[in-house]
């Protein structure tokens, strides 16, 4: 039996965009998507795709990517397919707003996973670069009653178990759990692979499965928002930087040391 793997992925505003392009609409309590910069697959979720592909490199496996949102840039969301994932399931509905409430999102994803018949392993990025909530994957594990290992930098399946190198404060630990399980991964997993030409061709031919709210059997009482966003603002930075000059860069370095000594900082 091939190992069935799901990767949960989110479409986000490109976090690498220039800071000057970052704008919020305070009334709508939302970040304004920059017009000339396309969205991307959340970086940690690309790490999750890479983790799934590494498993598929060494054993028979199928990879289904699942995402939820109000609308998608299909060429962006097909990137995991062009990297080597097999299927794409998009939960798309005007009601699936990208809100700060992780509870709602986790319920939708869990309902989709149930409808798909469950997976041996679910891999997710540790957090999304928009709301930085780091809650949805752990919530999905709780809702589905799966064993859960967070902050992985290496994920392997052996003897019916998942083995994860989990990042700790001082290094890492190797943690094992029986399948089915959910694992979150971090950037320490390494650079995700680039799509191959063959992968891009294959992805072009694949069509995503698209489900709306009516297709998902989610408990309405569990969809009430647990968190409300009251206000969104850009913090003011009022730090005045004193630029230390010198005859040349080396001299500026010496002057800096004198300055810090004078200020009793060193």
């Amino acid at each position: 039996m091939p190992v069935s793997i799901a990767v949960l992925a989110k479409q986000v505003i490109d976090p690498e965009m220039p800071m000057a392009a970052f704008r919020i609409d305070a009334d709508a309590k939302a970040v304004v998507p920059p017009s000339n910069i396309p969205p991307v697959v959340n970086g940690f979720d690309e790490n999750a795709v890479e983790a799934a592909l590494q498993i598929k490199d060494s054993q028979e496996a199928s990879i289904t990517v699942i995402s939820t949102g109000t609308s998608f840039a299909l060429d962006v969301m097909k990137k995991p397919l062009s990297m080597g994932a097999d299927e794409l399931v998009l939960l798309q509905d005007d009601a699936f707003e990208n809100s700060i409430d992780s509870f709602f999102t986790a319920q939708l994803l869990a309902a989709a996973i149930r409808k798909l018949g469950g997976f041996d392993l679910i891999i997710c990025g540790r957090q999304a670069s928009d709301w930085d909530n780091a809650q949805v994957p752990l919530g999905v594990a709780e809702i589905l009653g799966l064993s859960c290992i967070s902050l992985g930098k290496k994920v392997e399946i052996k003897d019916g178990k998942v083995s994860v190198e989990r990042i700790t404060n001082d290094g890492y630990e190797v943690v094992e759990a029986p399948l089915p399980a959910l694992v979150t991964v971090s950037n320490e997993l390494g650079q995700p692979r680039y799509p191959t030409l063959r992968g891009i061709m294959a992805a072009t031919r694949k069509q995503p499965t698209i489900w709306s709210s009516a297709d998902l059997d989610a408990d309405a009482s569990q969809l009430e928002p647990r968190i409300t966003l009251q206000e969104l603002f850009v913090p003011v930075r009022d730090q005045q930087c004193e630029i230390i000059e010198g005859d040349d860069a080396a001299d500026a370095g010496r002057q800096l040391a004198l300055k810090l000594r004078e200020a009793k900082l060193i």
Binding site: A249, A250, R254, L258
Partner: peptide, 28 residues
Amino acid sequence: NIFKEARYGVVGDWEQVVPAFTEAVREL
């Protein structure tokens, strides 16, 4: 952006700044 966050700054190549800074720190 770091100069918007810092109290003190040196605009220069670290390869020149850091050795001189380190030597001065050692002396001080």
